[in-house]
Design a protein around this nucleic acid. Structure first.
Lengths: 203, 203
DNA sequence: ATAAATTTTAAACAATCATTTAAAATATTC
DNA sequence: GAATATTTTAAATGATTGTTTAAAATTTAT
């Protein structure tokens, strides 16, 4: 049956995601979530049993959201330079669409890593992509600097994610307005693409 | 007068720094701090008036700690390649010594930037270093790719800080032990140095 | 339509939060 | 050494926390 009105459980889940991303687990109260969802406070526990369980459910989704698009790109049958460019463009778009996502993930995992890693099959998927094969082949035939996935992938991702995670401090440090930052981020994106490609691709 | 026993105010300040860095502002209670300092709960407010005021005082120190060493290096009269290498080594050492510092700063500023920027003269100092002059001269005489400080500095810093901020997720993603990560981080440090230098320095 | 199951509600729970109080203990001053 | 100022203490403040309760409202099943 198709409902025109959203189910309460989903309303709470979506509200909780927004609040958790903005305020973090510690900074979020059950009442914050209920208010954001415009629902009675008791319903968060009626549907999810506890704030902790609701959080873990949402965190799993958020972590998959973080990796999913990148995973698709990593498996594309395109040349390395295009692949790097696409990953960076994708990262860039993600940071603009969900500015809280990466710092949220980083901070929550940093504070309590043990509780946040369930059966993450997505991790295995990231380790075993077509890019890995491309790196091996490139290293073998001398077109690429020999590097492992775990070395090149952070180099690709850190540039964009770092300046967006630290958007406010970068704005303050270099006296930028929001508009300035937009232009700056675009410049930086191209620097990163060129820098990483120059380093990885030989000749 | 020299006291052999530490002053209560300093004991609280140092305890508060440890707890805030580990748990963040929202995750820290006044009782956590009092317990860590092994002092009565009322003393935190006796000396600092409120948890908020204590936090702001500590945050200012932490932010200066983050920039101070880098600032010294940026002003050194050494060639660009050595300077980049030193900044990265310094960052690396800082992340090992204070693993919570950068993610703490990033997260707190991200959550509430407006309240955390006092008269930060250190920001101006970072903008006006000898490195800036070196970049201008290098661009003018063709030895360096023309880049602004705000473009090159994040490229230098993001690599090391990113993998340490995300240490636990990188360990999980690439199935590393703590020992593995140590070796991995060392490798990565050298990749970053080479990559950034190759990109900035012409020929 | 009636009964049963589900969802929503207002109210309350004990625990903990940041902060304050006022008295006790200690240190300093004269 | 008495008077004063400072520091520390235990206890309490009212507000807020996550969670539960039991009744009311609504939906579903018969």
């Amino acid at each position: 049956m198709k409902c025109v009105t959203e189910k309460s459980e989903d309303k709470i889940r979506e509200a909780a995601k927004r609040v958790f991303l903005k305020k973090g687990f510690d900074g979020t109260t059950s009442r914050d979530i209920a208010k954001e969802a415009d629902m009675n406070i008791a319903l968060t526990n009626y549907y999810f049993r506890s704030k902790e369980k609701l959080f873990l459910e949402i965190f799993k989704d958020v972590l998959e959201e973080y990796f999913q698009n990148m995973l698709t790109i990593l498996n594309k049958d395109i040349d390395i330079k295009s692949k790097i460019s696409e990953i960076i463009d994708n990262d860039f778009a993600m940071m603009k669409k969900e500015p809280d996502l990466v710092i949220f993930i980083m901070n929550e995992i940093h504070k309590s890593p043990q509780r946040l890693f369930p059966d993450m099959s997505i991790f295995r998927q990231v380790r075993e992509t077509y890019l890995k094969k491309q790196l091996e082949e490139g290293a073998a035939n001398g077109t690429l600097r020999p590097m492992q996935l775990e070395n090149i992938l952070p180099l690709i991702k850190c540039g964009v994610e770092f300046i967006f995670m630290g958007k406010e401090i970068h704005k303050e440090l270099f006296m930028m307005t929001d508009e300035d930052f937009e232009k700056y981020a675009e410049e930086q994106k191209e620097h990163i693409k060129a820098m990483v490609c120059n380093y990885l691709v030989i000749g």
